[in-house]
Amino acid sequence: MELQFKNVSGKDNVGDFTWIHQSGRQALIADMVSGSDVHKGLDLLSSWLTVNQTNEPFNAEQVIAELHDLFQANNVQSTLGIITQQQACFELHFVGNIRLYKVEKQVEQIKEVGDEIHPLSVVGSEYSPVIQHTVLTPEHHAKFIVTSDGLDSSLMRSLTLSSETLSGGQLHRKLLPAVCDQDWSALVFPMANAQSFVNHHWPYNPFVGPQEDHLHERRGLAEIATELFKQPMFEGFRIVSCPPILSENSSRLFDGLLVYPFGVIPLELKDHHGAITIDMGTNKRNSLLVENDLGTSYLSNPATKLRESLRRFGDLPQLKGLTPELKNAGLVIFTSHHADVECVFDGQSTPAPFMQAGEVMVAKSTQLSKLLFQFCRARFGKKLKKD
């Protein structure tokens, strides 16, 4: 029930794609072949995975066969790699020049995997794909990196990386020196110890998709989950990784999406400590006051950002079937245990938790369950009933 994979991609990525199964035990990397309809291919792949995903990981060879038929029918071609956790090892099934590296004290390329410059076989061509397979067993805390050819092999081998440094986050920055094409992507694994705050005492793993890059965000999301498990009315909730939802090149709009029986709520997490004053009645961006041992700072107001983003969020095609009251609220959550949060609205200062300013609520992570229960009772009635 732990996330095993971390995905990283180029900021201006167009033709590469990474995906992590909701179980956290399987991941996929694809590199669309230039000359085919790249955008159509990515849409087909993303939609197929969404529609066919179940609680258990896919059979890798079956996925490749079905995607081959789908791509072939739509004149799309792609190299493809699927990594699946199998108890103490990982299985890699791949077609084409997907590349594999082992990282312990340095980066070592496993040249038996995808070393050719141009792929000899691809998914979606007129020929049946040649599926290659290898079993990977991590030893001495070693990690593996599976990449597209947008990362140069010789530059990868020259990176100053170790298993320990890969555990510390900022993977995008660490891989940048090896970039030879703006279309690039990578999957790093196993990352469970470094990446996941999943609690084995929870009834299930509520996280869907990769957790956030920053430690405070992962810790905060775990605390949010712990709080929500305390409230039976929220049973079945999920915390979903937020993909680029404005356009294919946009950054993540929110730090996560809470999907629960009473709708979908975007989450904005902050780790400021000290005395915090957040102005809930302004559209000014630098209207978050933080006073602590580092001094006094006026910072970007997360409530303002969330309020602006909610306008676009509610218009997403995926949410069209929801009534407005199920998708027009957002949460600003302060994750630091040493935060004293005051919310200013209509000239009055109120300590968090706070929900008197309409669509944007404010809470510390440990206050969330109580605040959200009050919010649901206020919006949907005192006798709450899950759909």
Rank of each mutant, 00 (worst) to 15 (best):
G274H: 00
F207R: 02
E116P: 05
L316R: 06
F90K: 02
S196I: 08
V188C: 06
P317G: 08
Q62T: 14
P244R: 14
F262N: 02
H214P: 01
A275L: 12
N286T: 11
P177V: 03
L45W: 04
P119V: 02
G347E: 07
S9H: 12
E116N: 14
L384F: 13
Q53P: 04
M355I: 08
G209H: 04
R307Y: 13
M156D: 10
S241G: 14
A142G: 10
N292K: 04
L159Q: 06
P302S: 07
R99N: 06
G256A: 07
A186C: 06
V344S: 10
E235M: 11
G35V: 09
E139M: 12
S241D: 12
H216E: 10
Q318W: 12
D43H: 11
S297C: 08
F90I: 02
L161G: 00
F71Q: 01
S46M: 11
L371W: 06
R157V: 11
Q87A: 15
Q77T: 04
N328M: 10
E248Q: 06
G220V: 01
F17G: 00
Q182K: 13
A27W: 01
L246I: 15
L331K: 09
N52P: 09
N75M: 10
A186G: 04
P317M: 07
E308T: 07
L136H: 07
N52Q: 15
V95C: 04
T54M: 09
S336K: 05
R238S: 07
M233Y: 12
S185A: 15
Q356W: 05
E212G: 07
V240K: 15
D43I: 11
P206C: 10
F58H: 06
P232F: 12
L319S: 09
A186L: 08
R99Y: 03
S9F: 03
I265F: 02
G24I: 05
S153I: 03
A339P: 00
Y298Q: 14
S153V: 03
S185D: 03
P324D: 15
Q367Y: 05
D16T: 04
T282G: 09
C242M: 09
V208A: 05
